[in-house]
């Protein structure tokens, strides 16, 4: 009986977390142009409409373009920064790391308006460029905080050994250090990409007129009701991510098992 209560508790929390997602999935099959609470019959036409609506396609394109460029730039700048930070004196390192933490702990809206004001102050007109710059700024800490611990674990000895054996600094970095810190680099990249795709507040404040990402497009429709094709697109994205994650979990699980088998023999 006590155990049933516990399972019920865990179940209710996860029901709470997944109920809106279920709702959105159902709504993307609802035969009504915008989201309402009323069921008007089953249709698949919103999935077709995704490809016919220019505003949605453009927002999707912008979202992915911004996320891709921002996370790639943040990863490159971030990894380079980590190598540099490693070489710093303890005191400078501390200051830099504290500054790195600011965007992480600061309220999003404060980061957003602070960037907006800076653009205004220097007369930079808002557009794709300002969104990109802002996204790179808030992605960088995720790269640094994931790569730096890995770099610390690696230490300088492997790098120095490679140098002693005649490798150029660039070669030593790419063939000795980088493979070692790769898990941190890829986590940092993926987190940056995710954060950028999911971002609303910072994009909302730093975008120019007429530029939409999926988040800002959704927000602009919240009063009148979201177009059902937008729900359909989100359902597709969600299921796609679910599929990727499941495959990854399954593959990693199998690799893990084969490795233990090998280790056992």
């Amino acid at each position: 009986m006590k155990k049933a209560g516990k399972i019920l508790y865990v179940g209710l929390i996860f029901l709470f977390l997944y109920l809106p997602i279920l709702t959105l999935v159902v709504l993307s099959f609802n035969d009504s142009e915008r989201t309402t609470g009323v069921w008007r019959g089953f249709t698949l036409r919103w999935f077709e409409e995704i490809f016919q609506r220019e505003d949605i396609l453009e927002a999707l394109f912008n979202t992915l373009l911004i996320a891709l460029i921002a996370s790639v730039v943040a990863t490159i700048v971030g990894v380079a920064a980590c190598v540099g930070i490693q070489a710093m004196t303890t005191r400078t390192k501390k200051v830099v790391l504290q500054l790195t933490n600011i965007p992480m702990v600061n309220a999003e809206i404060v980061t957003a308006i602070s960037l907006l004001l800076t653009f205004a102050m220097f007369g930079i007109s808002l557009g794709l460029g300002t969104i990109l710059f802002s996204h790179i700024c808030f992605c960088l800490p995720y790269v640094i905080l994931n790569v730096l611990p890995k770099l610390r674990q690696t230490g300088v000895s492997a790098y120095e050994a490679a140098r002693d054996l005649g490798a150029t600094p660039v070669k030593a970095f790419f063939s000795v250090v980088l493979p070692d810190i790769m898990p941190g680099v890829s986590t940092g990249f993926l987190m940056s990409f995710t954060m950028s795709v999911d971002d609303f507040v910072i994009t909302y404040f730093t975008r120019g007129a007429g530029i939409n990402t999926l988040s800002t497009l959704i927000y602009s429709q919240q009063k009148v009701g979201i177009r059902s094709s937008l729900c359909a697109l989100s359902t597709v994205i969600f299921l796609l991510v679910l599929l990727i994650l499941l495959v990854r979990m399954f593959v990693i699980d199998r690799i893990g098992r084969t490795q233990t088998v090998k280790g056992g023999s």
Partner: peptide
Amino acid sequence: FMLILPMWMNFLLRTIAWKVLLQKTGV
């Protein structure tokens, strides 16, 4: 995995879903 998965649905949409759920004539 179960805790992070919902975050892959846009958070504004998930919040708007609550609006649909909570409406007077809602689900």
